[in-house]
């Protein structure tokens, strides 16, 4: 590295079945913002097969360099094979920081990379910044969403996993230029042999624009039908607090909160949900929050933009009526 070279902020570009996961674009958005605070170069690392098209996309989204590892063994995620190559790259370029999405892939891969590099890793960050002294500041919820911890890393690189749907996406611009650096994948014994692979179709809560969620204010599993009808009229999907998922009233993929999905829809309607810290952890950043609850002191009202104090069994059918009459 020559004196003029900028240190890099390296984004792990997670790919699933050949497509870059949208959290990557959010990481690039954040990396670009940080590169204005310190002179840093935004780069990314992509592992996969026939991935040059996606690598070019990463350039359009603001990567100045894309380190591309291509091999058929890298198409599916393998913690050891991925780690081996990322560690080798990190040792070569000595980045300022490495960012991973806080997906299951990111959250299982980053610890292996961090331990191998003997460096610090901050989990599931909801904010990142750089202070006056050039130190990397990482903010993350802990204690099941009850507190926010501010964390610095004493070693280099700083490493973080970053929560999906929290950072602003980078803007795509085909005029952006950058280099694709083709890397030679290092061999290693894989973690496992994949015998079968399935993709679960079905709802994808984090991508929904409207979510109508039910909580313990619901009396029976069948009453989700009422919420479904409302959600459909609004072009949305149904969410749930955890107790109803635990009861088996609705699938786990509908759960919002600390141990479920984090969502940031344009509209979130909380029906009979009290607003526990663990539920709020998953939906607090929604653009518009509407709460319907019979208890005026329910915490959810403090986190909502609009609230109706009353019985969901009275209010929701009325709302459905009004929407149908339009």
């Amino acid at each position: 590295m020559t004196a003029n070279d900028k240190r890099e902020i390296l984004v792990f570009a997670e790919q699933r079945r050949g497509r870059v996961h949208p959290v990557t674009i959010e990481l690039l958005g954040k990396a670009i913002e940080l590169s204005n605070r310190l002179p840093l170069m935004v780069s990314s690392v992509l592992l996969g097969r026939d991935a040059e098209g996606e690598a070019q996309e990463l350039i359009y989204y603001g990567s100045k360099k894309v380190y591309l590892f291509e091999d058929s063994s890298l198409y599916n995620y393998d913690p050891i094979l991925y780690k081996t190559n990322i560690v080798a790259l990190a040792k070569e370029i000595n980045p300022y920081a490495i960012l991973f999405g806080s997906t299951h892939i990111g959250r299982s891969l980053a610890p292996r990379v961090a331990a191998s590099l003997r460096t610090g890793l901050t989990a599931d960050c909801t904010n990142l910044s750089i202070d006056e002294d050039g130190a990397f500041i990482q903010i993350r919820p802990a204690f099941t969403g009850n507190i926010l911890a501010h964390i610095k890393t004493k070693t280099s690189p700083s490493m973080s996993t970053v929560r999906y749907k929290v950072m602003q996406r980078a803007k795509r611009d085909e005029k952006r230029e950058g280099t694709i650096v083709k890397m030679t994948p290092l061999p290693n014994a894989p973690s496992w042999e994949v015998i079968d692979e399935r993709v679960i179709e079905g709802i994808n809560l984090p991508d929904a624009e409207v979510i109508v969620s039910g909580g313990r204010g619901l009396k029976r599993a069948e009453d989700f039908k009422m919420l479904e009808e409302l959600a459909k009229l609004l072009g949305g999907v149904v969410g749930s607090s955890r107790p109803l998922v635990d009861e088996g009233w609705i699938g786990k993929e509908h759960q919002v909160g600390f141990s479920g999905n984090t969502v940031k829809p344009k509209l979130y309607i909380a029906c009979g949900i009290s607003g526990s810290p663990q539920h709020l952890a998953g939906m607090r950043d929604s653009e518009m929050i509407v709460a319907i609850n019979s208890d005026p002191s329910a915490p959810i009202f403090r986190y909502a933009d609009m609230g109706i104090i009353g019985d969901i069994y009275e209010i929701i059918p009325k709302m459905i009526e009004k929407l149908k009459r339009r």
Partner: peptide
């Protein structure tokens, strides 16, 4: 290598809710 130098118990995230009875 990581150092928790500050802990915040967030009140933030609270909004001005228009409440209808």
């Amino acid at each position: 290598p990581t150092w928790v130098y500050k802990i915040e118990v967030p009140e933030e995230g609270q909004r001005d809710c228009k409440i209808y009875k």
